[in-house]
Nucleic acid binder design. Structure first.
Length: 969
RNA sequence: ACUCGGGUGGUGGAACUGGUAGACACGCAGGACUUAAAAUCCUGUUCGCAGUAAUGCGAGUGACGGUUCAAUUCCGUUCCCGAGUACCA
């Protein structure tokens, strides 16, 4: 009886499905555990071996936790709104809903074959109106909330309205600023439109003007992904920035809490670092400078107020509003020319050419408030209008960019840090003692920061200011395939729909082309857009809307009354383990963290960080294979570079290719080829005649290459026999392909489909092999060659139960201590490894265990039964089959994990290092079963100490920290 | 440039808080079984030197230093690879 996975696996997959083996209840006495995968976008390409890596890891952990007695929530769904389906619709006219449905079916079929334990009764899709009803509902909560700066949390906007009506908005201290502050009387006198305008500045989702990638030729707004080098990806048309009314998510209000929250979650340092960088908090000061001969002031932001006496010039962003006002008559034409130049450059160019120094003097001077020094004001593209105040004070001795700028334009450099500045490059130290710095002289820079800031505040010319790099996130897309906004515009006021009107379903459209003026396709539906109370918003929400809260919906997926019952979210609470790739480090993970915080602030859920622990799976790269084609040109075609079609294509093995490349002379190259083909081969004759050879390397399908050796018959059939007539120049009888590690993609023919491997080796082998490949968190190229080893292991396991010749071999005999030791060592090791997500070493532990049992010819139920339970998370099908064969009626998936008993694991001999009077002498092996004074049982591992011990037998051995041994002579 | 990872046999990778470096697997070599193949099993496999041999000696975790009785592990300097971010004031 052989291990027939082709029969076993489908059998148990359908059994699990029919018995709802994996459905999970919200009512249980067991402790809860929530394991979540980042849900996939169901693309048309289906799964490749990289996708299931994280899914297998989460499946193993879920099954393990379940065996350990937890009530485990392990759901799966689809992030099914998105651009590719819409683009496909544009090209083919097929409705995105249909494409999506079809793709989901493919995904599901592929996932099912791997034997995952998802609770499919909780499946969700972000494009399902039953789901996006609640995405829209949460949008309304955001719309109707504001961030209170005193309580540092979201509150209903109605509270703000009450406050405005009663007290207005008046600063606690200082003068009210027109346009920002107002009294209750003013508020109450304002029109609805005026009031709404003020409220819009506080709502957590708000509408404002923002820049988009506008492509005139296509008449549409493009995503960053669709813009390549300033041109549209489709058609290569010019793309420019255009201001349009957009929705935004006011995530900046949560910057501090997003930073603080990082301290409470288990993310990798790399991940936390990325989020911190993205938020980009910097503490500094904002400071105003008088401008000579002008009523205007120049406001700059700096993190180093201590360097104020080292300021040699100011730089203002070219787009800065002040530029036109302060430019002197003399500099006017030069400034205009420079502005024209900056305008001509795309943002991409400005970012790419970091080394290039450009700028222009405005002719104006700012006054240093401390020493009255006149500081020239320049404009330069390296200062960005969008960050800080759009103006900086430049300190060339302390900042490398400022230094290069000063050198380039011959601006004299003031040195305030003595010999810390060498005149060749700037030094940004904070450890120098200040010189040439007026009242700061003699102070350590890091101490001077506070002193200088305080002085500025006293003088009323500056104040402490915290800046963030992060901007509010754009929340609208001029697209069809997304959630429609529950908003109607009436006289410029955004009116939210009532919750009872949700879901606002996506209407059917006949064509997916953009609407007028860059609006989305929905704008073409005048019947839908025009309502009695106004016009509907025609843009849709971005892909991250649904994914920002989907993990909550799994807890209560069929609830029609609320997005997630508070009882359900209190029970399941945070996601205990979230597994996914690093590509979502700053997008999805920040947005979902923010939404969770808002829902928490509004009292809708009881926790404010969605993910307790995050495990990042590594990318599985493709390992591409190449074949090398050599061509000759016909003499008459040399000019047109046309390849000859008179003979079959010739492919040369990698070694030959390298040899050809290394030769410079044409005749040498020809000789190498003629060696194998013969001088009279038509190809050689042609090449000799035209004196032209061309070498090309082509991607070849990795699935027809064994290691690096090309399967020639398969290659001839590949691409419908395009190379059926090909000739090959081999080395040592083999065609060796070139190889390279690249991203896995269809066009590189380096994708490996899990289905093929499952058909060939079975799901259990596939699961264990993906884990065996290396640590989950590490990126690595896919390589199928080791899969045989894992498959061999499962067959070996099977033979502990059934022998091909003898049939059933397992028995009911009593296990020996040696056998129990093998078992319990495995329980310990596999449990520890699974707990710390070291799945690759756990697989090794299984192999060692089975090898040892096979060597010892142990086929006892007492040993095998617990072993099968250990195996369930890794290879559920074979484990269940054998469990069943042992005559067990109960379902294995609910068995309880075997308990490790240390009594079986007492090592009899162990090597310890030995120190004498604190100095190490050598390592000795000690019989742990022996009493410590039975010195004859001490096995000497090292000869030197043996000699030493012969003369002076130790009287006492003292264990220190369980490891170190101290011998007292 | 900055931040975070990582450099270990022919290959993927082990070594969990410093304690016999190379587990486990692939590959390779040799052998058994077989008419043969597949499958399976056994032996060897870090490198160098010596030996018929068991074995012995020496080197060895990117490089150079340091701490320690002891370093793949801790510290410093440096080189290389990967990921992320970027004129952020």
């Amino acid at each position: 009886m052989e291990y027939d996975f082709r029969q076993i696996e489908p059998k148990w997959q359908s059994a699990w499905k029919n018995s709802n083996a994996y459905s999970v209840s919200n009512n249980s006495d067991k402790p809860k555990f929530y394991v979540l995968d980042m849900f996939p976008y169901p693309s048309g390409a289906g799964l490749h071996v990289g996708h299931p890596l994280g899914y297998i890891a989460s499946d193993i952990y879920s099954r393990y936790k379940r065996l350990k007695g937890f009530n485990v929530l392990h759901p799966m769904g689809y992030d099914s709104f998105g651009l590719p389906a819409e683009q496909y619709a544009l090209e083919t006219g097929q409705h995105p809903a249909e494409t999506t449905e079809k793709n989901i079916e493919t995904f599901r079929a592929q996932l099912d074959k791997i034997g995952f334990c998802y609770d499919w009764s909780r499946e969700l899709r972000t494009s399902d109106p039953k789901f996006y009803k609640w995405t829209q509902w949460i949008f309304l909560q955001l719309f109707n909330s504001y961030f209170c700066h005193t309580q540092k949390k979201a509150l209903p906007i109605s509270l703000l309205i009450e406050k405005y009506a009663a007290k207005g908005a008046i600063p606690k201290s200082g003068q009210p600023i027109a346009g920002k502050h107002f009294t209750a009387e003013q508020w109450n006198a304002w029109s609805k439109t005026e009031q709404e305008e003020v409220l819009m500045k506080r709502r957590l989702v708000f509408s404002a003007y923002g820049e988009v990638n506008w492509c005139e030729a296509l008449g549409t707004v493009l995503a960053n992904d669709e813009v390549v080098n300033g041109l549209s990806e489709r058609g290569g048309h010019l793309v420019e920035k255009k201001k349009m009314r957009q929705w935004f998510l006011r995530i900046t209000e949560y910057a501090d809490r997003l930073l603080e929250g990082l301290e409470t979650v288990e993310f990798s340092d790399a991940m936390k670092e990325m989020q911190k960088n993205w938020i980009g908090k910097s503490e500094g000061a904002e400071m105003s400078f008088e401008i000579k001969g002008s009523a205007n002031q120049l406001k700059v932001y700096t993190t180093r107020p201590d360097t104020i006496f080292g300021v040699d010039f100011m730089v203002v962003a070219p787009e800065h509003a002040l530029v036109s006002q302060i430019t002197s008559e003399a500099q006017k034409s030069e400034i205009e020319a420079y502005l024209k130049y900056v305008k001509s450059r795309s943002e991409r160019e400005r970012l790419a050419e970091v080394k290039q120094i450009t700028g222009c003097f405005t002719g104006a001077y700012a006054i240093n408030p401390f020493d009255g020094k006149e500081i020239p004001i320049w404009i330069a593209e390296y200062v960005l209008a969008g960050y800080g105040t759009g103006a900086i004070m430049a300190v060339p001795c302390g900042d490398q960019r400022d230094f290069l700028f000063a050198k380039h334009f011959n601006i004299a450099i003031t040195n305030i840090i003595g010999n810390h500045f060498n005149g060749v490059e700037a030094n940004s130290t904070k450890e120098a003692i200040l010189e040439n710095s007026g009242f700061l002289n003699g102070m350590m820079m890091k101490d001077a920061i506070g002193v200088a800031t305080t002085k500025m505040e006293e003088m009323g010319i500056g104040k402490r200011k915290i800046n963030y790099r992060m901007r509010d996130a754009g929340f609208s897309r001029q697209r069809y395939w997304g959630e429609p906004f529950p908003i109607i515009w009436s006289d410029g006021i955004a009116l939210p729909l009532d919750a009872t009107e949700l879901p606002l379903e996506l209407p059917h459209v006949d064509k997916y082309s953009p609407g007028p003026d860059g609006e989305g396709p929905l704008a073409n539906l005048s019947n839908w857009v025009n309502t009695a109370s106004g016009n509907r918003e025609t843009s849709t929400m971005p892909g991250y809307a649904g994914s920002s809260w989907y993990f909550l919906r799994y807890m209560d997926p069929h609830n029609n009354e609320t997005f997630c019952d508070r009882k359900a979210s209190d029970y399941w609470n945070q996601v205990d383990l979230y597994i996914g790739g690093t590509e979502h480090a700053v997008g999805h993970l920040l947005y979902s963290r923010m939404w969770t915080k808002v829902l928490f602030d509004l009292g809708l859920i009881g926790f404010e960080e969605p993910f307790k622990k995050l495990l990042n799976q590594g990318m599985i790269q493709g390992s591409s294979r190449f074949v090398y084609r050599v061509d000759a040109l016909k003499i008459e075609d040399v000019r047109e570079q046309k390849f000859s079609a008179d003979f079959s294509p010739i492919f040369i093995s990698e070694g030959i290719f390298k040899k050809l490349q290394s030769k410079e002379h044409f005749s040498d190259k020809i000789n190498i080829l003629a060696e194998s083909l013969g001088k009279t081969h038509p190809f050689i004759e042609m090449a000799v005649h035209s004196r032209k050879l061309s070498l090309a390397s082509l991607h070849v399908d990795v699935n027809i290459v064994e290691g690096v050796e090309l399967n020639i018959p398969a290659f001839k059939k590949w691409k419908n026999g395009e190379y059926a007539a090909a000739e090959f120049i081999l080395e040592e009888g083999k065609y060796i392909c070139g190889s390279e590690v690249e991203k896995m993609s269809k066009s590189k023919y380096n994708t490996v489909n899990p289905d093929d491997l499952v058909v060939r080796y079975g799901a259990d082998t596939f699961r264990m092999y993906e884990m065996f490949l290396g640590p989950v968190e590490q990126s690595k190229p896919w390589d199928t060659k080791g899969i045989e080893g894992v498959h061999r292991f499962l067959r070996k396991l099977w033979r502990l139960f059934y022998d091909d010749l003898k049939g059933k071999v397992w028995n009911e005999e009593k296990a020996t201590d040696a056998e129990l030791k093998i078992l319990h060592r495995s329980i310990k090791k596999i449990e520890e490894d699974t707990e710390r997500f070291s799945f690759n070493t756990a697989v090794s532990a299984f192999m060692i265990c089975v090898n040892e049992l096979a060597d010892a010819k142990s086929n006892k139920r007492e040993i095998l039964e617990p072993l099968l339970i250990l195996l369930v998370p890794y290879a559920p099908h074979i484990a269940t089959e054998l469990w069943n064969k042992l005559g067990n009626e109960t379902a294995l998936v609910d068995a309880s994990y075997p308990v490790f008993e240390s009594k079986y694991l007492v090592e009899s001999v162990k090597v310890y290092p030995v120190s004498i009077n604190g100095k190490l002498r050598t390592n000795i092996a000690i019989d742990l079963n022996a009493k410590q004074d039975e010195v004859e049982k001490i096995v000497i591992a090292n000869e030197i100490v043996q000699k030493w011990l012969e003369g002076n037998l130790p009287k006492k051995i003292i264990f220190v920290k369980g490891k170190m041994v101290n011998v007292v002579v």
